[in-house]
């Protein structure tokens, strides 16, 4: 047992390179290792999703998928890197909703979002929850909205920086309830959550990845989930639609892309492999722990991702332009 783990640790990387040399049984693509670019730092929620599916897809493809973190500038550096890469199927990108919002948030992108990529499929859509410091007065979501409208001069809403999930949800909330209040940006979710726990700010809307444990621990108060259905982990938490604000429905969807010009044969192969990975029990369980679920097989397709990206670009263009916030 010990020896097995020990070997596992020390030879973990050696296994990667063995997979390289031991290739040859697969006909045609893929013939060597594939690099999956994640445009965010290692260890973040997007990186976690990428590593989960990359590992399972590697098994199916018979070639290792290596995750490379190319963080910076709200994910646009990594996306730009892939847009310029060879369209041979050996460089792919896993990006989230930021792919769609960056098209408007950044006025000078180095790539044309709708024309620089081929599509593989949707991976997962992480829901968000509106949470507040635990001694915040309102008891339910309608009460919360009324309170925010009434005290628009004094309430404060935290977000993790421009373009972050919590920022997008915040913009959506402001436009949904047609009220302007003070938003407080932080450098990342961690510091924002710390100030929420310390009662320095009033509320925040963030992914279940970041909020579910705090809600379960009773350190923050949860008002509503932004998903179309109630969350499996919090069946008592109403959805925003139930509370009468369906415009606030939003999820942090993740998709896999390839550079423009990648052959259909390759994207279909990757898509099939993605669907298999998403059906894997381990992946389903790991995602459930994060308060999310894999996208259904019908969505893990090139067509579904393309449609999603295009509709989301249009949706966020209105929201972002109304808010008048840009990242460059």
């Amino acid at each position: 047992m010990v020896i097995r783990h020990l070997l596992g640790a020390v030879s973990a990387a050696a296994v990667l390179s063995c997979a390289l040399t031991g290739a040859g049984f697969a006909q045609g693509y893929p013939e060597r290792q594939i690099t999956m670019v994640v445009p965010f730092a290692a260890g973040g929620p997007t990186d976690t999703v990428a590593r989960l599916v990359a590992e399972k897809m590697s098994g199916d493809l018979g070639q290792q998928i290596i995750v490379e973190n190319v963080g910076g500038a709200g994910g646009t550096l990594g996306a730009g890197r892939v847009a310029e890469a060879d369209a041979d199927g050996y460089t792919i990108l896993l990006h989230h909703i930021g792919m769609a919002t960056a098209a408007t948030l950044y006025r000078s992108l180095p790539y044309d979002t709708t024309n620089a990529f081929e599509y593989v499929g949707l991976v997962t859509e992480v829901p968000m929850v509106m949470v507040a410091r635990k001694d915040f007065e309102p008891v339910d979501f309608p009460g919360f909205i009324a309170y925010v409208k009434e005290n628009a001069d004094t309430v404060t809403m935290a977000n993790a920086g421009i373009g972050a999930a919590s920022h997008l949800c915040g913009m959506l909330f402001q436009s949904a309830i047609e009220t302007q209040f003070v938003t407080v940006p932080y450098k990342g979710t961690g510091p924002a959550m710390t100030d929420l726990l310390g009662g320095q700010v009033d509320f925040m809307c963030d992914q279940t990845t970041n909020t579910s444990q705090q809600i379960a621990g009773g350190t923050v108060k949860a008002y509503a989930a932004t998903s179309p259905e109630r969350l499996a982990i919090f069946p008592d938490l109403p959805t925003v639609a139930e509370a009468g604000v369906p415009q606030m429905e939003v999820g942090i969807w993740h998709g896999i892309y390839a550079p423009k010009g990648t052959s259909e044969e390759v994207t279909t192969r990757l898509s099939a492999s993605l669907q298999k990975a998403l059906a894997d029990e381990g992946v389903v369980k790991a995602m459930a722990d994060l308060g999310t679920a894999p996208s259904p097989a019908a969505d893990a397709t090139p067509a579904a991702l393309k449609a999603k990206l295009e509709s989301e670009i249009a949706r966020w263009k209105t929201v972002i332009e109304a808010a008048g916030v840009y990242a460059d």
Partner: peptide, 20 residues
């Protein structure tokens, strides 16, 4: 940043770190 990496590692391990 180092702690952030550790959180990522915990999540990949199926432990979502929190107050509990």
């Amino acid at each position: 940043p180092v702690m952030a990496l550790m959180i990522g590692a915990m999540i990949i391990q199926g432990i979502v770190p929190g107050p509990n």
